[in-house]
Amino acid sequence: MKLKQLEGLLGTLQQFSHPKIELEQYPTGPHIASRLLYTAENTYGDISGKIVADFGCGCGTLGLASALLDAEQVIGIDIDPQSLEVASENAVDLELEMDFMQCDINNLRWRDHLVHTVVMNPPFGTRRKGSDIEFLAKALKVASCAVYSLHKTTTRDFIKKIAVRDFNARTAEVLCELRYDVPQLYKFHKKKEVDIAVDLWRFVPNANQAL
């Protein structure tokens, strides 16, 4: 599938109709989402034929993009039942198979390393401090191949240090720096769009050595 085609399909997905502030529900736009998954597949071969988990899947954008790029099985996890409902409708609309699970990422208990790749756009931790780090810790625990994630550029040094030192990442690499338009979903955002600098990361867990 061509990048443009992937981006186009992701643009047709329904997104949060009543985003919940406390859960930091803003979608990854089709531009960023398509590039994230396209890089994961075409540069690193981490998607096609793999088991992919989408942490905090929201309306399913990243997971469905993985399914479009021929992941063998995709599992989306979110704490919010309304988002999961929209995500499963999106899957039906695109005629894709994706499994879903309602769970708080902090309490997720999966056997280690059965999932190959985790893709996620975690809450940045602006509402609940540290939730980005909790997502990362859990992702690096379950994944055997790679973790793709977005984090605020201001946290770059911290993320690098903690991933390698505490979460057993073998490598932690910023693939590119993006401008992320968080749309004005929330009243407390004064401007129409809040443009923040975000890093696209690729982490390789230590488990990868065994493969």
Partner: peptide, 12 residues
């Protein structure tokens, strides 16, 4: 939920 997913999951 498919059985592959069931196979990964433990009680939390």
């Amino acid at each position: 939920m498919r059985l592959l997913t069931h196979n990964m999951l433990s009680s939390n």
